[in-house]
Amino acid sequence: MDVTVKLTVNGQQKAITTDPRRSLLDVLREDLGLTGPKYACGEGRCGACSVLMDGKRVLSCVTPVSKADNTTIVTIEGLAKDGSLHPVQEAFLEEGAAQCGYCTGGMILTAVALLQENPHPTDRDIAEGMNGNICRCNGYPKIHGAIRRAAEKTKR
């Protein structure tokens, strides 16, 4: 039986009537056309589907859309404000921290959440905090560098 889920996505209010068992990822991508969150594992093991739900990083591929009722979602498309990039996006750009880029949106949102909780992470904190996100190009060194760079930006 379909249900109606109300949520705010990237600042816009949405009401979606759908099967509550569908994943938040599928609804974002297929119903709302937000393809920034990616499918890559379908079991919450790689972080490519990461979005912010009420400010916290969630894995949208294993989050039923019913759990998103009355929440505020930010996808990678909604992170930049008024055309200016978020400092973490800027840092990824400056560091050239993307190869194929398929993991990049998830990496950035995970890093945003990480830096909100811990604005001055050690290298160890970054590696631990990002360990749920896979990059198969194995561009980890530059991603790590970008997150460090973003942390330094916000320090100033």
């Binding site: 393809t35 920034g36 498309e77 992170l79 990039l85 990824f92 880029g101």
Partner: peptide, 10 residues
């Protein structure tokens, strides 16, 4: 890639 604007095959 960092804004999510690029459209991959999927």
């Amino acid at each position: 890639l960092v804004t999510g604007a690029h459209r991959y095959p999927s």
